[in-house]
Design a protein around this nucleic acid. Structure first.
Length: 286
DNA sequence: TTCCAGGGTCCTA
DNA sequence: TAGGACCATGGA
């Protein structure tokens, strides 16, 4: 991988196991809009345009500091070839990795990830994307033609009715209360330095956050790649494909640890996207 | 009309 | 600790 910086852009060449469309369209991020041959989002206070041409990714609208953050955002320094090789023995997962082998698990801003996945409760990707977009328009800072994700302070000061008007439904109460805790000093920075289980438990102190949403924050924001968010799709896959029928969280963790090991979260993202969009029967034929 | 979607909370047994 | 009702909403 080779990285070069220009005045307001960064170019990363020599990329393998990376597909921009798959990364942004596999249900882990809700704030990138397809634009002229690329994708645009307001991130780190900039309007960023991302484009991929083969093994080269160009990120326009950034400075060198943002560029460093964006390498981390797209998880470009992890050896996904080695991760995928370690799962080559698994038939269904191999199909998933073949189906969308360019997925990388993003490392997104913590507060944005928290609120996005509070919204995800009993919801679907399309609606989550719409609600997040309305929250950004209503409460986010404008950055050129787009709006950034709202700050904790902005959402903490919002009324439940105004958040509900963005389509959040009964989750509006959780969004406002979690934002108020964040604005009051909930220590997100400390979480990344904790052991995974401790960070996961700490997150459940926030309203609207159970173990599944906590796992999403651990995986998509804090870099705990062993986190394995257990949603309805993963229940179908684990029951139908892997014959898993445990019910408690402890049983699930033990099964996932044994089956997928230290990179379980990366495996989960391939499985989730394949089960949800790949057209394969995940209810049991392996 | 009913079911489902990247679930969480609260109450009861 | 487990099970179940309830919570908004829109697309299939």
């Amino acid at each position: 991988m080779d990285v070069t910086y220009d005045d307001n852009s960064i170019t990363i060449s020599g990329l393998a196991h990376f597909d921009l469309k798959q990364c942004l369209g596999c249900g882990q991020a809700f704030r990138w809009k397809e634009t002229n041959g690329g994708y645009a989002s307001a991130l780190f206070g900039c309007e960023i345009i991302a484009r991929q041409d083969g093994g080269t990714l160009t990120l326009a609208g950034v400075n060198q500091t943002d560029g460093t953050a964006l390498l981390r955002y797209f998880d470009l320094e992890r050896d996904y070839g080695a991760v995928k090789a370690s799962y080559a023995h698994d038939v269904y997962l191999s199909e998933g990795m073949q189906y969308a082998g360019g997925i990388r698990v993003l490392r997104q801003p913590v507060f944005e990830t928290l609120i996005s996945f509070i919204i995800s409760a009993n919801n679907n990707v399309k609606r989550i994307t719409g609600i997040v977009d309305k929250l950004c328009t209503a409460f986010g800072q404008r950055v050129d033609t787009l709006c950034d994700f709202p700050t904790a302070q902005a959402l903490a000061a919002a009324s439940e009715a105004d958040v509900r008007a963005c389509g959040a439904g009964y989750r509006a109460k959780y969004i406002v209360e979690a934002s108020q805790m964040a604005a009051a000093g909930f220590d997100f920075d400390a979480l990344a330095g904790m052991p995974y289980e401790a960070a996961r438990q700490a997150l459940t102190a926030l309203p609207g956050v159970g173990l599944k949403v906590a796992d999403c924050v651990c995986l998509y924001a804090l870099g705990f790649v062993q986190a394995f968010p257990m949603d309805t799709w993963m229940q179908k896959v684990l029951c139908g494909v892997y014959g898993y029928a445990g019910k408690t969280d402890k049983q699930m963790r033990a099964f996932v640890d044994e089956k997928f090991g230290e990179n379980a979260g990366l495996a989960q993202q391939y499985l989730f996207h394949y089960a949800r969009t790949g057209g394969a029967d995940c209810r049991g034929d392996q």
